[in-house]
């Protein structure tokens, strides 16, 4: 019996571990837990997790949704920023753009703080203004050592309450949104930025280029019967 006692102990702990994991998983399922305050789907774009509500620019009822996973310090995102604006203008009310935080740290050591700044602005209803500000001035703040005064200055320029902005910058609400977008990025296996999804379909290879993205949007419009 003594010979088998350690194996018995290990087996008991293994069973207890599996049972505890199963119970925890069950208790965390939506609608099964006090942690989930809202019984509604987590996201209007799909049911996959993500910051809710997402940041949407354009016609909320547009036939085509371009969902971007972006990193404010990523140079490609900075270059694509102006291209995407052109695309938004071209397709007008037929297109809506959703932005998701995907700060890549490393190599972008300031990406997280920039994402926090954008989300803090979002809490005051000015996410897109800060989003634009960050991309338009990417080459300035990316090389700075003390970013907070720069971001506070941007906050003032777009009409935010700087005290609230400072408070929100490291707040739980901002962290939670970035975390949820990170979870979504993980589910979609997004490891580079910018990554685009057109009506849920990832823009890969040549589709990723502005012309390819335009083609995907046109195709999505055709599929929607427009």
């Amino acid at each position: 019996m003594k010979r088998f006692l350690p194996l018995l102990i290990i087996a008991v702990v293994l069973v207890a571990t599996v049972a505890a994991t199963w119970m925890l998983l069950r208790s965390q399922k939506p609608g099964n837990s006090a942690n989930n305050a809202s019984p509604t789907p987590t996201n209007p774009v799909t049911d996959t997790p993500g910051a809710d509500p997402p940041h949407i620019r354009g016609n909320p009822k547009a036939l085509v949704t371009v969902e971007e996973f972006g990193d404010f310090q990523c140079p490609s995102c900075g270059v694509y920023y102006s291209e995407l604006k052109k695309i938004e203008n071209e397709f007008g009310d037929n297109l809506r753009v959703v932005f998701r935080e995907r700060p890549l740290i490393p190599p972008h050591e300031h990406a997280l703080l920039a994402a926090q700044a954008a989300e803090a602005a979002g809490l005051q209803g000015r996410f897109w203004e800060m989003h634009d500000k960050l991309y338009e001035n990417q080459t300035t703040w990316s090389v700075a050592t003390d970013l907070v005064p720069i971001f506070v200055d941007y906050a003032k320029q777009i009409g935010l309450d700087p005290d609230r902005f400072m408070k929100d910058l490291n707040g739980e609400a901002v962290a939670a949104r970035i975390f949820q977008d990170g979870k979504r990025a993980h589910v979609f296996n997004v490891n580079t930025t910018p990554t685009f999804f057109v009506n849920g379909k990832e823009a890969k290879d040549d589709q990723w280029k502005p012309e390819g993205l335009r083609e995907m949007i046109k195709q999505a419009l055709r599929e929607a019967g427009k």
Partner: peptide
């Protein structure tokens, strides 16, 4: 295990 479950269920960990 707690961290794994939080990760798998997509919960925000406070």
């Amino acid at each position: 295990i707690y961290l794994t479950v939080q990760d798998l269920t997509g919960q925000h960990l406070r």
